[in-house]
Design a binder for these strands. Structure first.
Lengths: 184, 184
DNA sequence: ATTCGATATGTCTGTATTGACATATACATC
DNA sequence: GATGTATATGTCAATACAGACATATCGAAT
């Protein structure tokens, strides 16, 4: 199956969601390591349903347009459980900034410094947002964060990756811009 | 222009290469942050030539099949220099392991531990390879690594990102598997 | 009344990327 | 002579993904 399919199942295993709400959850919860536009999500939901991984029911609403609420099936949950412990499909890491760094010797140092300082700032800001969520999780969920069969633990594990990633990225940007500044 | 086009230009700005040799260089030098199959590289070279960024000449060989050797043009070098200091196009980070971690609460702990230990090992091994290259660079290039207009500095800057990335990834995998083991 | 924004669900086209298919040369080994 | 491997260059089909196009409901504000 498609990784996007599992990303959707991973959200539906926690709560029932409409396509629209799924978009929001995707952005909030798993957006930093998997994302998709609605133009990809709606067809994927249809296919998941065709394959028997999810079902939907129509929910009529008074104050908003009606919606289709999707629920994971037993079969879908079983597929998700299997996928979780399988080795990941080898997928090339692609990072444009590292590629730019590889050609940084051709650049005007001042302009390169500006670029890397800006990027450092962006990753620093994202890191800050994650740290705030981390503080909130610890406050709100407490000891649940250590219960490995709790979805709170799983959320925290993913967040830790976000923190580590942004932290390392910001540090690297700082190292590059500092090196450029020393070399000017 | 396409990022792959710049990846190719970044290699051709350092040396002339045939499509086949470009494949090799791509794998060795920038493979960990940008990669492509030959089925993408050959058409890309043709398009870069059509757009005036590169030119090629035929080189006849005796002990091997003949080849097309590509060279970056002045125009191509100017385009590369501009691209290097431009902010990167926003590209979604996608990481399947983090997505799996988000659903780890559904998994059998023993099997999850195996998965994350294996992944830790893989990233640790890659980190080791990078550290060896780092040692070689320091030995071989010495003070050049601090000359910001030297391509050796740029190579080192990219390598540092690889080291940071793998180091952080391995550490995260270890944290996850240790947490799972404590929780069993 | 109209306009705007949030909610809600879709389709379509183009590009990026992978994996398979396809072909040819030259050397080394069996 | 046959087989395998590295070198060398391509095409083609399918999938993944982004961005644009398209439509409709409902509440709030003008």
């Amino acid at each position: 199956m498609r990784t996007l399919g599992y990303a959707i199942l991973s959200l539906l295993s926690r709560e029932e969601l409409s396509g629209y709400d799924l978009m929001g959850r995707m952005r909030e919860r798993v957006g930093f390591f998997w994302s998709a536009r609605h133009s990809q999500i709606y067809p994927e939901l249809a296919q998941l349903e065709e394959e028997g991984f999810v079902t939907h029911r129509l929910v009529e609403q008074r104050e908003r347009p009606d919606k289709k609420v999707y629920e994971i099936t037993e079969y879908g949950l079983a597929a998700l459980k299997e996928w979780v412990i399988e080795p990941p499909s080898v997928r090339a890491t692609r990072d444009e900034m590292t590629l730019k760094a590889y050609s940084i010797w051709l650049a005007d140092p001042e302009e390169a410094i500006t670029l890397f300082r800006e990027q450092e700032q962006k990753h620093q800001e994202q890191l800050q947002r994650y740290r705030e969520i981390e503080a909130w999780m610890k406050e709100e969920w407490g000891a649940d964060l250590e219960r490995i069969d709790s979805h709170h633990f799983a959320s925290y594990a993913a967040l830790r990756r976000g923190i580590g990633y942004e932290s390392e990225y910001a540090e690297w940007c700082r190292w590059v811009s500092d090196s450029l500044e020393r070399g000017v």
